[in-house]
Nucleic acid binder design. Structure first.
Lengths: 210, 210
DNA sequence: GCAATTTTTGACCGATTGGACAAACGTTAG
DNA sequence: CTAACGTTTGTCCAATCGGTCAAAAATTGC
């Protein structure tokens, strides 16, 4: 049965699908959708191409599944923002969480970056729907903070864009960051430096002038 | 003669090579290196594939030429930073110039982003050489400003990364930005909003605490 | 106007691609 | 043991890819 692609039933199907997705994430993140080949993915997953196509009905199917999974975890930090805590603390921990995700899930970040760069052919509806709704919601919270004089008045949309851009930069442009910083200051130190800098930039940048 | 690929000699060669590069920039920026096909580029340039290959000896040759051109103009704003002017003014105009480039040359930005995302296979030596040297140089200037108490003390490398990330974001993630902001606030207004926000963020974020 | 040179094209090639398929193999419930 | 079902693979295919080549067409120098 080719039902495998629709709903996993057996233990093997669940395991193998997971194995394929893990391999595909690596390949897609590195080469983009068109740059990746089914053979590469199958090879990385340790199985033959027809075997892989037994679990996913097409290359597009794999990619779509990955993107869908990614979005849930990717937007989690943003969802967590609420207006019950201290605004500065709230923003600070959002930045830190996003930076941690760039460090811990760079492949997911690059997969997403690739998709957006190509014009978001597979996720545009989600961007205009779910994502926009979520951002609009958080923008209102941030506006509340500004009205209350907790943070400086500025454009909340561009604030969110700036946080996304600066944090994801460390995953998407990792090669460039590493090349510029050089072999010294590698590993954990780089992450802490970035965290410290971004924290200062956004906290001071949003401090209310008095 | 296939010398066309090496050194343009005639008027037609100069014009046609320019036409091809213009078309290729569009295609490469949208689909990445592997995603783009010679046929697509030839079609966009209004000529046949063999004709295109008369002017460039391979797909890689076109791409390499584009990247090489890009880098000169891309790094120009950074080169312009010097320590004779007022630090805040200097940084502010650097940010504005970078943002203008993201607005006026989004295809170049995406071409570069694609290259870096794929691991910078064609420009890694340049990143580790020329770019690193240039950044190191400007970092020293920024450090001087900090020592002189003109701007707050922080990591100059990550400051530069943050400026790159936030400005290029508007070119590379344009689809996402547009989707989130919606049809209103399109066009020139978006650029001015972004400019105003980034200016505030970096100027206030780097203000010396008194 | 004509010959040399440059430019353009149609036809073609081998390699790679995503995917189909049936046969073989493994597993498991009765 | 065996029939039914799940898994794996070798083989094949049509489409597309980057690139070649020789010959036709256009241009240029004289």
């Amino acid at each position: 049965m080719d039902q495998a692609a629709r709903k996993p039933r057996t233990r093997i199907q669940i395991e193998k699908r997971e194995l394929i997705l893990e391999a595909a994430l690596e390949i897609f993140a590195q080469h983009g959708f068109r740059g990746a080949t089914i053979d590469q993915i199958a090879d990385a997953a340790g199985m033959s191409k027809p075997n892989l196509l037994y679990y996913f009905k097409s290359k597009d199917d794999i990619h779509r599944t990955l993107i869908q999974r990614l979005l849930d975890t990717w937007l989690a930090p943003l969802r967590e923002i609420d207006d019950i805590g201290d605004p500065v603390t709230e923003l600070r921990s959002y930045i830190r969480r996003k930076l941690e995700m760039a460090r811990d899930y760079p492949r997911e970040s690059r997969l997403f970056a690739n998709e957006i760069l190509q014009g978001a052919p597979r996720v545009l509806p989600m961007l205009e729907g779910e994502l926009k709704t979520l951002v609009d919601e958080k923008v209102e919270i941030i506006r509340g903070w500004m009205r209350a004089g907790k943070i400086a008045r500025t454009d909340p949309y561009h604030l969110i864009f700036a946080i996304w851009a600066t944090t994801q930069h460390y995953a998407d442009f990792d090669v460039q960051v590493r090349a510029v910083l050089g072999p010294a200051r590698d590993g954990e130190g780089r992450f802490e430096d970035a965290a410290r800098f971004l924290e200062q930039l956004f906290v001071e940048g949003l401090r209310v002038k008095g």
